[in-house]
């Protein structure tokens, strides 16, 4: 653990006291506290202060709503959405960028939110599955997935739909083979692939505004 001063925030000059120094003190305190409830309580209070030091500010827009809050740097965008904003439509299927269930749009580009830290998305506009319908009016891709039965269990579905919308917008849905290749980053273990491909081709050909 280093003793360096922390530099963070949006520019290179914002300085804080080293969090690690602080934690060293507080964990030494906690180590003393093995048997004493009173000291345990004190450590717990310290813990709250520690938490404050561990977090850094984050401005992020999710589904059109601006959020201004503090978050630990180690929180992934996926966990941030699911556990902090309670937007559980974005799914955790592997947590290692190997399945695509966590696909969201960051500034319009589809990404795996499990391999991005929330703080790396400072100032970005994130769109999740909860943000694509207009009120009760489903997004054309959502409707097409229902029409073509493009899912079974539904767990990979939000990622598939977010990926599918991007696939068309990127210009990668010109034929079935292209759709299959460019949708291969989204695993569906129920095996709804042919129906998903049908849904995407239909939306592509339908000339909808995505």
């Amino acid at each position: 653990m280093s003793k360096e001063k922390i530099i963070h925030c949006k520019n290179d000059s914002c300085l804080h006291e080293g969090r690690r120094d602080f934690l060293k003190k507080s964990s030494a305190l906690a180590a003393l506290a093995v048997a004493s409830p009173a000291i345990l309580k004190a450590a717990e209070d310290d813990e709250k202060i520690a938490a404050w030091f561990e977090k850094i500010p984050l401005q992020i827009e999710v589904n059109g709503i601006a959020h201004n809050l503090n978050v630990e740097p180690r929180v992934t965008l996926l966990d941030f959405l699911r556990e902090y904003l309670h937007l559980t439509g974005t799914k955790k299927g592997c947590d290692h960028g190997q399945c695509g269930a966590c696909t969201v749009h960051a500034d319009g580009k589809r990404i795996n939110s499990c391999l991005s830290l929330a703080v790396m998305n400072e100032g970005k506009k994130i769109t999740t599955i909860e943000g694509i319908a207009k009120g009760d009016k489903l997004h054309p891709m959502q409707e097409a997935f229902i029409r073509h039965d493009g899912f079974q269990c539904g767990y990979c579905t939000p990622g598939q739909i977010m990926s599918a919308i991007a696939c068309i917008k990127e210009g990668h849905a010109n034929n079935e083979d292209e759709v299959r290749e460019f949708m291969s980053g989204n695993i569906c273990r129920c095996g709804a692939y042919p129906n998903i491909a049908d849904a995407i081709i239909e939306v592509k050909n339908g000339g909808y505004e995505l």
């Binding site: 955790k92 999740t128 997935f145 229902i146 899912f151």
Partner: peptide, 27 residues
């Protein structure tokens, strides 16, 4: 007929076992 839970599944509203929130929930 189309799936009766289709809308929930395509909107992210369908809740799976890790998606229930309670006050004081721990991990």
């Amino acid at each position: 007929i189309d799936r009766v839970d289709g809308v929930q599944k395509v909107t992210g509203a369908a809740k799976y076992s890790a998606e229930y929130d309670f006050p004081g929930l721990v991990y």
